[in-house]
Write a protein that binds this DNA or RNA. Structure first.
Lengths: 341, 341
DNA sequence: TAGAGTGGCTAATACGTATTGCTTGGAGCA
DNA sequence: TGCTCCAAGCAATACGTATTAGCCACTCTA
C-alpha cells in the first residue's frame, strides 16, 4: 500500500458511492452539455464527497490540460537584491499581480548558476521547461540566449524592448524610449532651446540605444553625445558648454546628479543656466538633489502586460508579440527656457 | 494533435536518441544500483537532452512522489509589496540565497486566492504539492492551516516561531525574542534601572508574545504593560511615568517613534530622562529620529536556515525541526542610566 | 552443450483525473 | 416483432514520468 494514508482519490469516492470513477469525475465537473447523471446518483456521490472532504488532486488535473499554470521568472541577477531593488521590484510587482489574476504560480529560477556575475539560462541541466513559459528580466540579455529561445520555440516574453536576435523577432513588452526621449527634446525646443547634448553610455543595451535614437531623431544626427569616453562630470560639463548646448538629456539619473554638482561647482544654476532632463526614473537608489524633469517608466504595467502577453501566447491567442508602452512625462524643476545672451 | 507546441517529453528524447522512454528516464535519474545503461548510450541520450533543453514535467514527476528541486514559498501577502518591503525582503534574500546554493528553484504561490485580505493555503485547487516542500512567511499564520499542513504530513517550515497547532509541533526557524528581550531588560537593570514598562500589542502573534514573555521573565510579572487599549502615545507616556518606569521596551519601532515624540512634547530628553529600547528593527519603513538601542533580527539568516531545514526534512535528515536564532544587540543612543531624583 | 549468469535494454504498469466512446436496458413507434 | 432513440453509466484511454519485470544476446562454467 504505497498510497499516502489519508489521500483520497476518485476511486475511493466511487467505491463508497457504488459507482465508477468516471461517474465521480462527471459529477464533479458537471458540465451542462453532458449531464448524463441521474439526480439521485449525483446526490449520492456529492454526499460522499462532502462527508470525506475529498478534493481533486490539482496535479493530476493539470496533467491532462497541457499547461501547468507555472510561469517562470528569469532574472539575470538575484531576484531579491539589496542593490537595484528600485529597478526590479516594480516589474516584479506587476508580474506578481498579473500572475495572481490569471491563477498562475511563479517559478524563480534560482537554480541557474551564476557565471561571470550573471546567471545563465542555458546550462547543463537548465530547468526552463519546468515552467509553461517564462518572463525574462534584465538590463541586457545576451542575444545568443535570446536566439536560442526563439529557435527552440520556447514561449517567453522579455520585459523591455529587444533587438532581433539572429534575425528572429523577440517577444517583449517594452517602454517607448524613442518617442519619450524625442518628446522631451521637442518640449525643450518649444521653450526656446536650440542646441542639445546627450549624456549616456550609447548603444550598449536596447534601452540606452533607444534613448539615443530618440534624441538623434529629434535633435539632429550631429548633435553632441557624451559617453563613457569622458567619465569625469566636470569634463563632460566643459564639453557640453563648449558645444553651446543649453539642454542636456541624461540617460542615467546618477549621471544627472553628478552633472548637477559639477554645474553648481562652476557657479551655474539649474535650470536657469542649464536645463537637465532625466530620461527615466532611477534604476539604482540615488539621492537626487533636485526633482528632475523627464519621464517615468511604466514598470509595473510592463510587468503586468508581460505576463498577459505570455499567457496569451500560451493559449495561442497572441497575434502581436511586441508591445511598446508610453512613458509618462514628469514635470520637474530642471527645465526652463535657455539663458539669454 | 493536442500537444502544446514546444513541450518536449521523454518520448521525444527517446525518439531522437533512438532508445526507449524507459532508457531516457533511467539516464536522467541515474541511480547507482540500477544504472545498467552503456556509457555510449547514456552519452547519446544526454547529448539530445542538452541540445533540446529538455526538463521533466514537474507535475508528472510529483504524481509519482518524487523530488523536483522546487521549493514553494508561501506568503500571506504579496511577495513584492510596496509596503512592508523591509519586513519581507531580508527573509526572501536569505531564502533565495540558500535555494541557489542547493540548486533549487523557488515557486511563489501567487495562484492562492486572496480572501479577507490574506491569501489562503487551502482552497479549491491548492497547488502546494507542485513543490517538494514549502517555506511559510507571515506575521501571523492561521493555526487551522498549520495543523492541517502537519496532519497531511506536508513538508514545510515556518519563518518565525510558531505555537503548536492543535497540539502538533510546527517546524520553524525563528528568532529568540524571549532571550533577546530579557537581555535588554537586564542590560538596563545593570545601568541602574529598576522599574520597566512594555509597550506592545501583547500576545497577538507569537513574535509579540515572546517579547512580552521575555519582558515579564526579566522585569517581573506585575510590571506595567501598555497595549492597544491605550492607543494615544501621550496617554501611554503618562501611564508609564505614573508607574515610575525609567526604561520602556517597545515592540514596534513605530510605537517607539511616537513615544519619543510624546516625550519631547513634554520636555523630556531621551535617554537622559527616559530610556527607550526597541525590540527589533523596523518591520515597516519608518523615519526614526533616533538610533534606537535594542536588537536586530537575523532575518536573512532565518530565511537561509529555513530553506536548509526544509531541505534536510525532504531528505529525511532533520532530527530537530525547531530552531531559534539569537538576535544581535544594537548599541543605540536611547539607553542611559536612569535620572537621579 | 546445457545451464547459469550478466549486461543492456524495453514493455508494461502505476500515479489520479478527464474524456471518448461503448454498453445496457427500456421506451416509443411502425 | 423489428427498429430507432434515449438516458444512465461504465470501460478504456490519455497525460508524462518512474519503476518493475522481464527479454535477448552473449559469456562463463561444468
Amino acid at each position: 500500500m504505497p498510497q499516502a494514508p489519508g489521500r483520497l482519490t476518485q476511486r475511493d469516492i466511487a467505491r463508497l458511492a457504488g459507482v465508477s470513477q468516471t461517474t465521480v469525475s462527471l459529477v464533479l465537473n458537471n458540465r451542462p452539455d453532458a449531464a448524463r447523471i441521474a439526480p439521485e446518483t449525483r446526490e449520492r456521490v456529492l454526499r460522499v464527497i462532502r462527508e470525506t472532504g475529498y478534493a481533486a488532486d490539482p496535479l493530476a488535473r493539470r496533467m491532462l490540460k497541457q499547461l501547468n499554470q507555472i510561469l517562470g521568472v528569469f532574472t539575470y541577477e538575484p531576484v531579491f537584491p539589496s542593490t537595484s531593488a528600485d529597478f526590479y521590484y516594480p516589474f516584479l510587482r506587476g508580474i506578481e499581480e498579473s500572475a495572481e489574476l490569471s491563477g498562475c504560480d511563479l517559478l524563480l529560477f534560482t537554480s541557474a548558476p551564476v557565471q561571470d556575475g550573471i546567471r545563465r539560462i542555458f546550462h547543463e541541466n537548465n530547468r526552463l521547461r519546468v515552467a509553461d513559459g517564462c518572463v525574462l528580466l534584465g538590463r541586457a540579455i545576451p542575444s545568443a540566449e535570446l536566439s536560442r529561445l526563439v529557435t527552440e520555440d520556447y514561449p517567453f516574453v522579455c520585459v523591455g524592448r529587444r533587438d532581433d536576435a539572429d534575425g528572429l523577432a523577440v517577444p517583449y513588452v517594452g517602454a517607448d524610449y524613442v518617442s519619450a526621449t524625442a518628446e522631451q527634446v521637442d518640449r525643450a525646443r518649444a521653450l526656446g532651446h536650440e542646441r542639445f547634448a546627450f549624456v549616456g553610455p550609447g548603444a550598449v543595451a536596447e534601452s540606452s540605444a533607444d534613448r539615443l535614437e530618440g534624441f538623434r531623431r529629434a535633435a539632429g544626427e550631429d548633435t553632441l553625445q557624451v559617453g563613457v569616453e569622458l567619465p569625469d562630470p566636470v569634463d563632460r560639463l566643459e564639453r557640453i558648454l563648449a558645444a553651446g548646448a543649453t539642454a542636456v538629456l541624461v540617460d542615467f539619473l546618477s549621471d544627472a546628479v553628478e552633472l548637477t554638482e559639477a554645474a553648481r561647482g562652476r557657479g551655474l544654476r539649474i535650470p536657469e543656466d542649464l536645463s537637465v532632463i532625466a530620461l527615466g526614473d532611477p534604476t539604482t537608489p540615488v539621492d537626487a538633489p533636485l526633482d528632475y524633469t523627464g519621464f517615468t517608466i511604466p514598470r509595473q504595467e510592463m510587468g503586468r502586460q508581460a505576463v498577459d502577453l505570455l499567457t496569451e501566447m500560451l493559449h495561442g491567442q497572441a497575434t502581436v508579440t511586441q508591445r511598446l508602452l508610453a512613458c509618462r512625462p514628469v514635470e520637474g524643476e530642471t527645465l526652463a527656457p535657455p539663458p539669454r545672451h
